[in-house]
Simulated scan of single mutants.
Amino acid sequence: MKALKITQYGDIDSSLAFQEANVPEPGASEVLIKINAASINPIDLMVMRGEMKALKKLNLPVGIGRDLSGEVVAVGSGVSQYQPGEEVFARVGEDHVGTLAQYLVVDATHLAKKPENLSHEEAASIPLVGLTSYQALIQVAGLKKGEKVLIHAGSGGIGSMAIQLAKAYGAYVITTTSSANVDWVRKLGADQVIDYKKENYLDLLSDIDVVYDTLGQQYTMDAFKVLKRGGRVVSIAGVLDPLTARELGINWFFRKLIGLKSRPVLKQAKDKNAFYRMVIMQANGDQLSELSALYRDKIISPVVDKVYPFSQSLAAFSYLNSKRAKGKVIISLNSGD
């Protein structure tokens, strides 16, 4: 089979290459999937460039890609919930990364049945961004009906899904975006849209219940300026908090460094009696099934920007890297190449 792999750390053209590989066999708790479509995400670029080496150093070459939609080919001896021929989708666990391949084995607990009303390309757009926002907004922040939530970068892959998810849970959604995307994110369900090219959200907002920090750096610190006292900041791009660092199994030395780096943010949280948590998404088939129902019932719609054939995977990564995508970038393995 053909698979796209990271062969060395670096940029897109020097790091990624197609290689031939054997079709894997599923272990007892695994399922072999014929992949029809995969989406790509900023984390794939970060890993490729070596920006995640502090957390996990790769034994190159390795596969790339974490989202998939496809068809069950075979199941392990301990798997009874899936049968060959069923259509499924998943955000695979870190031990099974490599969805840009014609076949992949996946932990059965990370799978969910694909919504019947979606194509494989649409379904592949969901898992990582869906689970990330579900775990950040619903599981960790506990977003409630009627609460005000600020979601940065509403036109991106994460933002376009998070807006819809927050609305599905009855929140009042505020988002930031560029001038060209104001009307588009409003159609996704945003109640208030701030054009960051013309307005400063810090001048317009106050008493926000939940800030979903998707950008990090100064945005993490500034979240507390618009947050109500006792509010919640959940970040997917800010500094690690001590609890998340422990859950990741980071050794004591790096946790010490993380503690020093996170001190300014944690002080801001303490001064405002607020909650801060860095969310590292975990693959979870049960939660993905919950999300699947929202798509099946058309409460949330997939947001796909462009679909590339497998042979043009490097072009797809270049487009993702341009940061111009409105929604998700998909690679189709159904194109016959």
Rank of each mutant, 00 (worst) to 15 (best):
W184T: 13
W184G: 08
W184R: 15
W184A: 10
V185G: 11
V185E: 12
R186D: 01
R186T: 04
K187E: 15
L188E: 05
L188C: 08
L188H: 02
G189M: 10
G189I: 12
A190N: 02
A190W: 00
D191C: 13
D191Y: 08
D191G: 14
D191S: 11
Q192I: 09
V193I: 06
I194A: 05
I194E: 02
I194D: 03
D195N: 15
D195G: 05
Y196Q: 09
Y196G: 06
K197Q: 14
K197L: 09
K197F: 03
K198A: 14
K198Q: 15
K198L: 13
E199F: 08
E199I: 09
E199R: 09
E199M: 13
N200I: 09
N200L: 12
N200D: 14
N200Y: 06
Y201T: 01
L202V: 00
L202F: 08
L202R: 12
D203T: 15
D203N: 15
D203A: 15
L204G: 09
L204N: 06
L204K: 14
L204V: 05
L205N: 00
L205K: 01
L205P: 00
L205Q: 04
S206N: 13
D207T: 00
D207W: 06
D207P: 04
I208R: 01
I208Y: 03
I208S: 02
I208P: 01
D209E: 10
D209T: 02
V210Y: 01
V210W: 07
V210K: 05
V210A: 09
V210F: 08
V210H: 10
V211S: 07
Y212F: 15
Y212P: 08
Y212C: 11
Y212T: 11
Y212W: 10
Y212G: 09
D213C: 03
D213S: 07
T214E: 00
L215D: 12
L215H: 13
G216T: 06
G216F: 03
G216V: 05
Q217H: 10
Q218Y: 08
Q218W: 10
Q218H: 14
Q218F: 15
Q218G: 04
